[in-house]
């Protein structure tokens, strides 16, 4: 499944798709998009890379085993859930920083929750696909 054309295309496609996925993630709060879609697009990017360069190389590129992504994402989402407790609010209360930050927009616990979702989706999808692909060969 590796051709020169695909490899070359992927070299450009991977960063573009990843950027696009982050774009989807960040704009999700106001426009269509969000953690789920963003995560799925990012996963597709890595899957394309694995088509071109082989799953082992993609895993090297990721540095960490996808299982760690799952753990990190869950941790981030859970933290953003419970952080409001520190300020005396019930869990899951959305807290927002008043100032707008360029590019990212407004920052709040819901954003971190969405980022957690994003990471979990990437981790789980890649974990499933890569495990299967490694064991099918």
């Amino acid at each position: 499944m590796s051709s020169i054309i695909l490899k070359t295309a992927v070299r450009y496609l991977l960063p573009i798709l990843l950027l696009f996925s982050i774009f989807l993630l960040l704009r999700g709060h106001h426009l269509p998009g969000g953690g789920f879609v963003g995560g799925l697009v990012a996963s597709i990017a890595f899957v394309l890379h694995s088509f071109a360069h082989g799953t082992e190389n993609t895993l090297k590129l990721l540095k960490y085993n996808p299982i760690r992504f799952i753990a990190m994402g869950l941790l981030l989402a859970a933290c953003s859930m419970f952080i409001p407790i520190l300020w005396g609010y019930p869990p899951m209360t959305a807290l927002w920083v008043d100032r707008m930050i360029p590019v990212v927009g407004s920052i709040g616990t819901a954003l971190f929750f969405d980022i957690g979702v994003y990471i979990v989706v990437v981790g789980a999808v890649l974990n499933i696909l890569f495990t299967i692909s490694l064991h099918s060969h």
Binding site: A124, V125, I128, L129, T131, I132
Partner: peptide, 10 residues
């Protein structure tokens, strides 16, 4: 459903 399908396939 994606999770379900993946698990079922495996």
């Amino acid at each position: 459903s994606f999770g379900l399908t993946a698990f079922a396939i495996v």
